[in-house]
Amino acid sequence: MPDMKVVVCAKQIPDPAAPPLIRPDTHTLDRTGKLILDDSDSYGVEMALQLAGGADDEVTLVSMAPNGETAGLRTALAMGATRAVLISDDALLGSDALGTAKVLAAAIRPIQPDLVIAATESTDGYTGTMPVQLAELLGLPSVTFAKGVAIDGSTVKVQRQTEAGYDDVECPLPAVVTVTAGVVEPRYPSFKGIMAARSKPIDVLTLADLGLAPADVGAAGARQEVTQVSEAEARTAGEIVEDDGEGAQRILAFLEQLKVI
């Protein structure tokens, strides 16, 4: 039996550096191309590896992605995660945050983790609600926006960001914790890690395997429609000048013109 079981929610997303492809029929992000591990989740993976780094500990990645995509999971496995569970099913197309939480909850429940870690929000959708919806469905307490996480016996101690600073929060395990970028510095996968990741197990599950009905998830379960997506009105660039020693004076003149000084 492993000592400490940590689940990390790992999202695989289209490269955010590339322009987003919007499906014209559903007005949703086209996720059928190559996917990578969401950078936001690399912090959660690293945090999990630091908290559950013992020989008998276990870090399980849980992900939902189309077309059996595992590229991002291999990245996290190469960092050192033990194994992965991927839920991939055509019926999941168009799932919103609550639908995603239902799927992940069904996949996580049998693992009976001590701790579930997720990013505060994904880079592509950034709703920031999925981990808390997941916690509610799992019947677990949650602490969001962690900038520091430590385990003390059966308690997780979190420094939780607030508008004015941070709070110290203590929560009994099992629990769901969301981490910010900067909570830890993610390691780069080593060559050895990359080689080892190739043989680590990834269980691929369908909705039926989880006992979920298509109506509860996907576009039907989202119970919302996007009627239009358009590019936001772009701000146009103003005057761009090379600093030839007069840069500060140009700023001063602009501030005077705006009557700020």
Partner: peptide, 17 residues
């Protein structure tokens, strides 16, 4: 966001963010 997420799951209603 915490309260919205919790309520969304409790009521089984999606949330637009």
């Amino acid at each position: 966001r915490d309260i919205a997420g919790r309520l969304s799951a409790k009521l089984d209603r999606p949330v637009l963010t």
